[in-house]
Design a protein around this nucleic acid. Structure first.
Length: 580
RNA sequence: GCCCUUGUAGCUCAGUGGUAGAGCACAUCCUUGGUAAGGAUGAGGUCACGGGUUCAAGUCCCGUCGAGGGCUCCA
């Protein structure tokens, strides 16, 4: 029996086995509770595992407790995992008898003659393996949550129930992981957004953030920094309409692909839509003049407000909203300048993410099923993007079939505190829209040619980017981005006037300072400034008033001692300087 | 949109069918302070909304809306 078990002591492999085996143990426990359970798939994922299954009723949190209890009993009984190879016919017969419909489908999808079967105690499952030797090796686990999941990920299929769990080799690793999850919750941008008074949502406008003064300050700083950076790199900025007739979206192809995801309404017997993106506007801008090859590349930047009618269930904090702005731009290039432009965009993206000290990963998405245009063009575009990535020595993941309907794209993904990946920047090639809009420029030989369009964004959605930044910095923003840079704290009433004088001097030099002259103790005001993550606290009392100075306290560094106001202004101005 | 969870004061939360609570925040007064919470008093709630069950509903049931976790989607 035991000789069928594969031995391997590679730690990554071992952890994989532990997680996968724990998924089996979980299914085993579920089967004890629901003998009619039909099991689908139970793979290993980052930090753990899940198992999808059809059950006679929906699970609740109490069920998870019960399942966990039963799992512990199974672990304790220390059953061995036995590996068998069955002929497919035997497997079909067995799983058929046990009414495991999903397993039967899976067996049909397996090309080998034989299938592998793992048995632990009285629970038998179709499984490629491998597994641990005994259930006791799976004692460090925790079930985390239940959710719905479509069979084979297709929303037309019935919805199954999924249980997620985490599993580790040692109790220490498990506790560390659970602790990290707790820590990550503390830096959740929704929690910090409320605590730091950055933004909020109201039920009257689901998915659309209200930017409070402090959050708006961050928004405006990011917006102006990217605006300046774009300008230095040859971009011009425009403002474009919010509402368009349906005809525009039909021309662009968005109506066909996305009409259900747009906000549409009737007015004077015409259908209008709130713009879900800027590109069609920019096509019209290009078309508004006769263009020469000498004008290209033309780089148009636009931070307009966009609306997308996202599914209610998809909304979440700032990372998935219905109203947002992008640092959007479209570059109209010739074939000769195209590669240079993509390269320059990549350089800009690298610069920006280095400023935020954020790592990004790159994915290349290729032709989807519902693509428009000629396959040859797609091939050429995909090759060019790949070349640029390789020339920039970036690792990338190939996402076959994940491109936009008009062209292939490079997406840039950053990882948040909990390890969830979010798309931010993007570079998308487009040979289609210029044709659909019949955009042309006059080339050297006096012929009309279609430009090639690059859609690109660096932050992506400002909303999402700020959400990610909040978590990245745990609310402690770098000085240049901190919505309030200084709290001027007077010790008693007689120092209030001087506190305002200091604050005014700072404000004159563009430093974002606020006087906290409430009738509270200095300690109280310091505590509150610390909790609000204000970078500098400037204490003013008798001592400071006499010397025309301030007592400087740093959020992270504590009491820094006395400084003259002018010295401090000089120092903080230098410290708060940032340009991409 | 689908599955699950959830909605009590501005915030964080307690309240398991029988007269709505705490801490913080807020207001007034006292206090005038030296690097993370000074004190007293007070105001503040149609328990998200709409139905239903019950002698009686914040509490149980149904629906709507919002939020959270997933699934699907993400131009």
């Amino acid at each position: 029996m035991d000789e069928n078990i594969i031995e391997n002591t590679d730690p990554i492999y071992e952890l994989h086995c532990i997680r996968h085996s724990t998924a089996h143990i979980m299914a085993h426990a579920v089967e004890q509770m629901f003998p009619d359970a039909k099991f689908a798939i139970g793979p290993v994922i980052k930090d753990g595992f899940y198992y999808d299954m059809a059950l006679p009723r929906n699970l609740n949190d109490d069920d998870l407790v019960e399942i966990e209890k039963r799992m512990k009993d199974i672990v304790k009984s220390n059953n061995p995992f036995r590996r068998d190879e069955w002929d497919k016919d035997k497997a079909r017969e067995w799983f058929g008898e046990h009414h495991q419909d999903f397993k039967l489908e899976l067996i049909d999808g397996i090309t080998d003659e034989k299938v592998t079967i793992y048995t632990e105690g009285d629970f038998t499952d179709l499984c490629a393996g491998p597994h641990v030797r005994y259930t006791k090796q799976c004692k460090n686990f925790k079930l985390l949550k239940t959710s719905g999941a479509y069979w084979r990920g297709d929303e037309k299929n019935p919805m199954l129930q999924r249980i997620y769990g985490t599993a580790w080799k040692t109790k220490e690793e498990l506790d560390l992981h659970l602790n990290q999850l707790e820590e990550a919750k503390k830096r959740d941008h929704r929690k910090l957004g409320k605590e730091l008074e950055l933004f909020f949502f109201h039920p009257y406008a689901p998915g659309s953030p209200f930017w409070l003064p402090k959050g708006n300050t961050i928004f405006q700083i990011l917006s102006s920094k990217i605006r300046e950076y774009n300008a230095r790199n040859g971009y011009v900025e425009v403002r474009t309409p919010q509402l368009f007739k349906k005809d525009l979206w039909e021309t662009s192809g968005h109506w066909e692909h996305y009409k259900d995801d747009m906000f549409n309404f009737e007015s004077e017997e015409e259908t209008y839509s709130l713009k879900p993106m800027n590109c069609p506007s920019h096509m019209l801008i290009f078309k508004s003049q006769l263009r020469s090859y000498r004008d290209l590349p033309i780089r148009i930047h636009d931070q307009g407000v966009l609306h997308r009618n996202e599914d209610s269930g998809a909304l979440g904090g700032l990372t998935r909203v219905r109203m947002f702005s992008q640092d959007d731009a479209h570059v109209f290039a010739t074939e000769e300048t195209l590669k240079q432009e993509i390269n320059s965009i990549l350089t800009m993206i690298k610069r920006i993410y280095s400023v935020f000290d954020m790592k990004f990963s790159v994915s290349l998405s290729t032709r989807p099923e519902n693509f428009m245009g000629e396959p040859e063009l797609w091939d050429m575009a995909e090759k060019m993007l790949e070349e640029v990535i390789i020339e920039n020595e970036l690792e990338y993941k190939l996402n076959k079939g994940d491109g936009a309907f008009y062209g292939p794209k490079i997406d840039y993904l950053v990882t948040d505190a909990i390890g969830r990946e979010f798309q931010t920047a993007t570079t998308q090639l487009d040979f289609q829209l210029p044709r659909r809009f019949d955009l042309t420029y006059v080339d050297k030989d006096n012929s009309f040619k279609h430009p090639i369009v690059i859609h690109r964004a660096m932050y992506g959605s400002l909303e999402r980017f700020i959400g990610i930044l909040i978590e990245h910095y745990a609310g402690i923003f770098p000085l240049w981005l901190a919505p309030v840079q200084c709290h001027v704290i007077n010790i008693s009433d007689r120092h209030a006037e001087y506190a305002h004088k200091v604050s005014n001097l700072l404000a004159e030099r563009g430093i974002r300072a606020v006087v906290d002259d409430r009738n509270e103790t200095m300690n109280y005001k310091i505590r509150e400034a610390q909790l609000k993550k204000i970078p500098y606290m400037l204490i003013v009392g008798d001592k400071e008033m006499e010397a025309e100075s301030i007592g400087v306290r740093n959020l992270k560094g504590g009491d820094l001692g006395l400084a003259t106001v002018s010295d401090f202004i000089e120092q903080i101005t230098a410290e708060a300087k940032m340009d991409f």
